[in-house]
Computed example of a mutant assay.
Amino acid sequence: MQLLVVGATGTLGRQVARRALDEGHQVRCLVRSLRKAAFLKEWGAELIQADLCEPESLIPALKDVTAVIDAATSRPTDSLSIKQVDWEGKVALIQAAQAAGVQRFIFFSILNADQYPDVPLMEIKRCTELFLAESGLNYTILRPCGFLQGLIGQYAIPILEKQAVWVTGEDTPIAYMDTQDIAKFAIRALSAPETEKKAFPIVGSRAWGSYEIIRLCERLSGKEAKITRMPMGLLRSVRRSARFFQWSWNLADRLAFTEVLATGKPLKASMDETYNAFGIDPQETTTLEVYLQDYFSRILKKLKELDYEQNQATKQTNKKTAFKSGFFK
């Protein structure tokens, strides 16, 4: 099957591309920068330079494509707004896929997007879901809510480096999932008729709060976390201030997601129907405990090796210094 993966350089998109290649699909990746996407070419993917915000560039990208997997989203540092990328860009992509006769369209949304109309990214995802459903394309909508990979930079590394771990006053549990597992669902959807023209939650086995994750990291690393609490009122003030400047609108829209965290309502869902429809065994899904345990085991082993090498180098330096000084004469 000839696939077009959109957003293939991102945390999730690269796993989708990797999984598709491993399963023998022909993979074309729509990228804005060929240089940043060089690793995808090394994996065996075809690269085509295009931009969601330039509809005419999508036509050659979709030539002979059987299915599209859309994992793209705007980033806080992008010069383009959430509206430009996640709404206008996605509308252009869906329309181009229609015109190209694409047989399957897999779209990544967000869990519970319909419950937060005042959060720009959530509302745009909801509207995109509706637009896709009415497009006539044979679609599948996947709704994750958080990636295990993001926890490394948010919790694990600061704890190892004795830096502050920032948490909000409110604690909303989130059912994180490994992006490799999410990619598995995306590729499986291509061959599972039960997933056609439906939407599914794609979440972990349980929802974890910030303090639960911190305690787990402390236990696995043997180090104590330095916790700094960020009041929600302060985050809201920063968001309001950011709206005064056009260059920071994207940041302000991203900060609006803090309203989801402020509810304290867990981001989770039952996965029973999802596992049945996709024919995937729940036991194959990586849990947060296993993921972090594997990370800390590898990183602590590496730190011990580096410490040993450093000690050996220090001993050699001291020995050479002793000979030069005539200590052993």
Rank of each mutant, 00 (worst) to 15 (best):
C53M: 02
A45Y: 07
D64M: 14
A67F: 01
S57I: 06
I48H: 08
K41Y: 10
A37N: 07
L40Y: 05
E54A: 13
V65E: 00
P55V: 03
I59A: 07
T66Q: 12
Q49H: 02
A50E: 04
C53P: 01
P60R: 14
A67N: 03
A45K: 06
K63I: 10
P55I: 02
R35W: 02
R35C: 07
L30E: 10
R32Q: 05
T66C: 11
L30M: 15
E56R: 08
C53Q: 02
I48V: 13
F39S: 12
E56W: 00
S57V: 07
A38D: 04
D64A: 13
E46S: 09
S33C: 06
L58G: 03
E54C: 08
V65D: 02
D64K: 15
R35I: 07
K63Q: 11
V31C: 13
P55G: 02
W43L: 15
K41I: 08
P55H: 02
L58H: 10
R32I: 05
V31A: 14
I59P: 06
A37K: 04
L58P: 08
G44C: 04
Q49S: 11
W43V: 09
A61Q: 12
E56I: 04
E54K: 04
L52C: 04
K36D: 09
T66Y: 08
E42F: 01
L58V: 13
V65C: 11
S33R: 08
T66W: 06
S57H: 01
K36V: 04
K63L: 13
K36E: 10
A50T: 02
L40G: 09
L47A: 08
A61F: 11
S57T: 14
S33D: 10
R32N: 06
R35P: 00
R32E: 06
P60Q: 14
S33N: 13
F39A: 14
L34R: 15
I48P: 07
A50V: 04
